Simulated scan of single mutants.
Amino acid sequence: MSLYDDAVLVLKGYEDQADLRQDYLDHLAAHPDGMWKACHAGHVTASALVIDPTRDRVLLTLHRKLRMWLQMGGHCEPGDADLESAALREATEESGIGGLSLLPGGPVRLDRHPIPPPCNWHYDVQYAVLAPPDALHAVSDESLDVRWFGYDEVADVADGSVVRLLEATRARLGA
């Protein structure tokens, strides 16, 4: 199965955010290249919020270009088997943490946001991952910093998208 086909199946199976989910599906139907950065109308991205083993903190990255605290994530690559693999790869690369595990249940939420030209939109499929007990993070080339934040600190440093992802993740965790 192709990454495109996986994305369509994942989105069709995602039960929340019905209007936005349909926008994603419409975008992919209109753009067979909609998984790739080269699609200037917008493209699907995959991200993951890293949760610490005690489940009371999240690891955010200070994005080098945007200069914003965000979850780990980015563009899909041809070697990605599926959206989950893309999100896990991005989280591992950007956090420096090996042994991350996806939170069960598929995507936590969707977030479509404008990006600077030449592209127009990121259609982000957002997951959550749990860090192993011995997690040691590192700053990647794409980051200025990587830092743990308590749940109650996130709204002070991150934008509404990250806050909504954290809220949805906490609901999934029952926290």
Score class of each variant (00 low, 15 high):
2 S>H: 01
6 D>K: 04
7 A>W: 06
8 V>C: 03
9 L>E: 15
10 V>L: 09
10 V>W: 04
11 L>I: 07
11 L>Q: 02
13 G>N: 13
13 G>E: 01
14 Y>L: 05
15 E>W: 00
18 A>P: 04
18 A>T: 10
19 D>F: 05
19 D>P: 02
20 L>P: 00
21 R>P: 04
21 R>C: 01
23 D>R: 14
23 D>S: 13
25 L>C: 06
25 L>R: 05
26 D>A: 13
27 H>L: 09
27 H>W: 12
27 H>D: 10
29 A>E: 14
30 A>S: 14
30 A>E: 15
31 H>I: 08
31 H>D: 08
32 P>M: 07
33 D>W: 00
33 D>Q: 14
33 D>A: 14
33 D>P: 00
34 G>W: 11
34 G>S: 08
36 W>Q: 13
37 K>L: 14
38 A>R: 15
38 A>Y: 02
39 C>R: 04
42 G>L: 05
43 H>C: 07
44 V>Y: 02
44 V>K: 07
45 T>P: 02
45 T>L: 06
46 A>E: 11
46 A>M: 12
47 S>R: 07
47 S>L: 08
48 A>S: 15
50 V>E: 03
51 I>S: 00
52 D>N: 15
52 D>W: 10
55 R>Q: 15
56 D>T: 14
57 R>C: 08
59 L>D: 01
62 L>A: 01
63 H>I: 00
63 H>S: 13
63 H>E: 12
64 R>F: 00
69 W>M: 06
69 W>K: 03
70 L>E: 02
70 L>G: 02
71 Q>D: 08
73 G>S: 09
80 D>H: 14
80 D>A: 01
82 D>R: 12
84 E>I: 02
86 A>L: 08
87 A>E: 05
89 R>P: 03
90 E>W: 04
90 E>Y: 02
90 E>C: 05
96 G>F: 03
96 G>A: 07
98 G>H: 09
98 G>M: 06
101 S>G: 05
102 L>G: 02
102 L>W: 07
103 L>G: 01
104 P>Q: 06
104 P>N: 07
106 G>Y: 10
107 P>K: 03
108 V>N: 05
109 R>M: 15
110 L>S: 01
111 D>V: 02
111 D>H: 15
114 P>S: 11
116 P>V: 13
116 P>N: 12
119 C>K: 11
119 C>S: 15
121 W>Q: 08
122 H>Q: 14
123 Y>I: 07
125 V>Y: 01
125 V>H: 05
126 Q>V: 13
128 A>Y: 03
128 A>R: 09
131 A>C: 05
132 P>H: 01
135 A>G: 09
135 A>S: 11
136 L>T: 13
136 L>Q: 13
137 H>W: 14
139 V>M: 08
139 V>W: 00
140 S>V: 03
142 E>V: 00
143 S>Y: 01
143 S>T: 06
144 L>T: 02
145 D>A: 10
145 D>R: 03
145 D>S: 05
146 V>P: 04
147 R>N: 11
148 W>I: 03
149 F>M: 09
150 G>I: 00
152 D>M: 09
154 V>R: 12
155 A>K: 13
157 V>K: 06
157 V>C: 09
159 D>G: 15
160 G>M: 10
163 V>Y: 07
163 V>A: 12
164 R>N: 12
166 L>N: 08
166 L>E: 07
167 E>M: 12
168 A>D: 14
168 A>F: 11
169 T>S: 14
169 T>L: 11
170 R>M: 15
170 R>I: 08
171 A>I: 08
173 L>S: 11
173 L>Q: 11
175 A>F: 03
